[in-house]
């Protein structure tokens, strides 16, 4: 029922992109997103589009699967496009529909905003689709490490993220289970107005909260029983290590950014 959510989901496959170190991918995603904000022009967006397509091809993940992630935020994208289309002030009027006018500036902004949003989301879902949650948080922890000097609790942040990510599928499964159990008792989650619908959520939410607290309690106890006491002196099973692929990936990233910056100043 609710297993169709793809954002943040990991898609296991064998590809160059999957092999990359999580730090490389996080940096890559970060700079890709940054590049979308540096420069707005047909050429740069074309370049970004090409780069993104090449990466997607390299991941071997079906494009259809990637686009599925867009479905859930389709409304936001449409809203952005429509609002920008009609509400951007401009001089060159292209079309007048009653009280609304479409200007060429509006058309331009709407186009850029729309593509930027779509590329942002696909770009970041490439990161999560090709990196397992555990590796991802390892990468984040490693990148945050230097900030520990200024008292940023890098390990704790990463641990919290790991646990939160780990719990998403468990909670989804639990919701599914409780929902089915209440359906078997004749519960009705679909029909009725807003208030009736909200009320019908009680038989779902109460057990869900209770089980979340119980799980959190159990986990805390289990961690404590295994002498967990924060990140200090903690070693890890899988050490992050840059490989040759990462070297090439960074080179390609650099080249991409240089072209972007150069295009900005021509």
């Amino acid at each position: 029922m609710i297993r169709d959510i793809t954002i943040g989901q990991f898609y296991p496959a064998k590809s160059r992109i999957h092999e990359l170190d999580p730090r490389t991918k996080i940096n890559g995603t970060f700079f890709f997103i940054l590049s979308l904000f540096i420069n707005q022009s047909l050429i740069t967006y074309g370049l970004a589009f090409l780069a993104l397509s090449a990466v997607i091809m390299a991941t071997t993940i079906p494009v259809r699967f990637m686009l599925k992630g867009l479905k859930s935020i389709f409304i936001i994208i449409m809203l952005t496009i429509v609002l920008n289309l009609f509400l951007t002030p401009g001089t060159t009027v292209l079309l007048t529909l009653g009280r609304f006018t479409i200007t060429s500036e509006g058309l331009q902004t709407a186009f850029y905003m729309g593509t930027r949003l779509i590329m942002l989301i696909i770009g970041s879902s490439v990161l999560t689709l090709t990196t397992s949650p555990i590796t991802l948080t390892d990468g984040i922890e490693a990148l945050l490490k230097p900030l520990e000097r200024i008292k940023v609790p890098a390990h704790e942040i990463a641990m919290m993220m790991t646990i939160a990510l780990r719990f998403i599928p468990i909670l989804l499964e639990e919701t599914d289970k409780i929902m089915k159990a209440q359906l078997a008792r004749g519960a009705d989650f679909e029909s009725g107005g807003l208030i009736k619908k909200a009320r019908s959520m009680v038989p779902l939410l109460v057990p869900l909260f209770i089980s979340s607290f119980r799980r959190a309690d159990d986990l805390a106890l289990a961690m404590e029983a295994r002498c967990y006491r924060g990140g200090e002196g903690r070693t890890r099973l899988k050490q992050l290590k840059y490989k040759k692929v990462d070297f090439w990936a960074y080179n390609i990233l650099m080249l991409y950014l240089i072209i972007f910056v150069v295009l900005r100043f021509i």
């Binding site: 289970k177 409780i178 159990a181």
Partner: peptide, 10 residues
């Protein structure tokens, strides 16, 4: 009656 049905009490 599902497995661990006590988890559905509310």
């Amino acid at each position: 009656v599902f497995q661990y049905p006590e988890h559905q009490l509310f």
